[in-house]
Design a protein around this nucleic acid. Structure first.
Length: 518
RNA sequence: GCCCCUUUAGCUCAAUCGGUAGAGCAACUGACUCUUAAUCAGUAGGUUCUCGGUUCGAGUCCGAGAGGGGGCACCA
């Protein structure tokens, strides 16, 4: 019986059949009490024969070296971390390769494991899942090795695995087969686990300060709380269109009215906009609201929370990002929007004539254009100011820096500064030109809120406005919302920054891609 | 939506001026009880992304399309 040599799948299916013929289930079954490979590697491996620990491991076969009647495998689980591993073969001795420290070598000797296991060993492929019982020891060359006494077949891999040296470099392939990326790119698993760690740190940090986590609806009748185009979907029984949420804000503030004084949510929001290295149509936001706080209390909280995340990663407070090193040691710089504007644009942001004059030279139009590119009116002063800020200032903000006190026209949900109605109590945290966090002293005055909504709605296409009239939300405010500080953090971008990742796709396990076409 | 780049064996990559599509790894057969990115000998593996054009002849040149990447725009 020969295997068609031109077909990998057929060859592996053949092995699957042979494993079945040995009376072994090729899909494995429950396997209890195995030890993490990292824990096994921490055990003493160089004891006398009669003192060697018995261990049980499980993992995926990632390398195989068969020498006649003694086979060496390397199996790997998820218990380790990225390391550099020295090569030992004569040709390449001393060279280093990227590895994952939770691999362990398994030696299977024909005489030692018995006929059944030896027959099974003949059918093992790279990518198969295997459990091993054996004594921990070393080889003649000193490699920590499980000397197999019993094999437990835990799962067949029917498709070929990538090049053991180069893995897969085709980014499309990796994006469409994230499981391969996780298996063969150590940094991908590392980054994924770091993301999980960061989110857990945020929860721990907030929980310790008395915040409670809630879940609010994803399907909204009115997509409010941010300026973004929503996804539209439909509820059949009610026969109404609904929007996937673009922000968490309005429901969480209703909970403030409801007496939940420290509340947060970490959840997915959806924005029907372009895809880029900084944008995925669905992304994760953390928003929190604290009764009786303001934007200054949010600055302290933000700084403490992000520093806790950084400390949780255990790599110190100076983090590498691209070719720069960012110093996250608190306290972080606090800079007013007006100061930042003056420094980089060169004019006072309140000087309307000067702003209008400088705008064209920076590529910022002062007219609103319709779809035919005809001017249909003058842009609001605050809008021009902010466009200048985006083109001239943002990139220069190395950070971490809190930019505070925004032009009020940009912030319909924010309380105005006392005695300065054109300034809103808002800050954004910038690091390397990226907005990491956005916080307000929340507007809790329903009369002003309703006016702001109506003004904004009159001036802008609804989809471009942050202020969508939400009658139910106004009604909630009329019952009395405590003065409060509110904070929003884009989790994906925070993870990018803290894990030195330049594209958002790499911090999201399954980013949106066009469907694969046949 | 616009511009640029890219697509060759399962994976990583070659292929000169337009002239027989190759190698390493993986796979298959064989040898080997201390290998370690094992080694050695042999075998097999291709719609060169798709469609069309130029040409005696196209992986290579031209046109269109698709996927992906990068940039711009929108946005967080």
């Amino acid at each position: 019986m020969s295997t068609p040599p031109d077909n990998f799948e057929a060859a592996r299916a053949e092995k699957l059949h042979k494993i079945e013929q040995l009376g072994i289930d090729p899909w494995g079954s429950r396997f209890d009490d195995y030890q993490p490979i990292e824990a096994i590697r921490a055990l003493p491996a160089d004891l006398a024969d009669d003192q060697r620990p018995t261990v049980r491991a499980a993992g995926r076969i990632v390398l195989r070296r068969a020498t006649g009647k003694l086979h060496f495998l390397e199996i790997r689980d998820w218990s380790g971390h990225r390391i550099l591993r020295k090569r030992t073969s004569k040709e390449h001795a001393g060279e280093e390769v990227d590895a994952w420290s939770s691999y362990i070598q398994v030696a299977i000797g024909q005489k030692q494991v018995g006929e059944l296991a030896w027959n099974l060993a003949q059918e093992l492929d790279l990518g198969d899942l295997l459990g091993v019982d054996g004594k921990l020891g070393t080889t003649k060359t000193g490699e920590v090795t499980i000397w197999a006494e019993k094999l437990h077949f835990l799962g067949k891999s029917l498709l070929p695995h990538p090049d053991k040296v180069k893995g897969i470099t085709d980014e499309e392939y990796l994006l469409r087969h994230r499981y391969f990326d996780l298996l063969y790119s150590p940094e991908t698993l590392e980054r994924t686990l770091n993301r999980i760690k960061i989110v857990r740190t945020i929860r721990n940090h907030l929980d310790k300060q008395g915040f409670v986590e809630v879940e609010t609806p994803t399907l909204h009748a009115i997509a409010g709380g941010a300026a973004a185009r929503p996804f539209i979907t439909h509820h059949n029984t009610l026969d109404i269109d609904l929007f996937l949420r673009i922000a968490l804000e309005l429901h969480l503030k209703r909970l403030l009215v409801g007496g939940i004084e420290k509340v947060y949510e970490i959840g997915r929001v959806f924005r029907n906009e372009g895809i880029s290295r900084k944008h995925n149509p669905e992304f994760t936001m953390m928003e929190l609201y604290q009764a009786y706080g303001d934007y200054r209390s949010m600055m302290d909280l933000t700084e403490g929370m992000i520093v806790a995340c950084i400390d949780g990663l255990g790599k110190g407070r100076q983090l590498q990002f691209g070719d720069a090193t960012i110093n996250f040691e608190p306290p972080w710089q606090r800079l007013s929007y007006a100061e930042a504007f003056k420094a980089h644009v060169g004019v006072d942001m309140d000087d309307k004539a000067a702003v209008a004059e400088v705008a064209p030279s920076k590529g910022v139009r002062t007219q609103i254009l319709n779809e035919q590119k005809q001017p249909v009116g003058a842009k609001d002063h605050d809008v021009i100011v902010h466009e200048l800020f985006e083109t001239c200032v943002e990139d220069k903000l190395e950070g971490p820096v809190f930019v505070h006190d925004y032009p009020a026209g940009l912030c319909p949900l924010t309380k105005r500064k006392q005695g300065k109605p054109h300034i809103a109590e808002r800050f954004e945290l910038y690091v390397r030109g990226m907005e990491l966090a956005n916080a307000y002293t929340e507007l809790n005055d329903p009369i002003t809120q309703e006016q702001t909504f109506r003004q904004q709605l009159a001036g802008l296409p609804e989809e471009d406005s942050m202020a969508k009239m939400d009658e139910d939300f106004i009604r909630a405010l009329r019952h009395g919302m405590p003065p409060a500080g509110g904070l929003g953090v884009g989790i994906d971008r925070l993870v990018m920054l803290l894990t030195n990742t330049t594209t958002i796709r790499d911090v999201i396990l399954f980013p949106l891609l066009r469907p694969e076409q046949k």
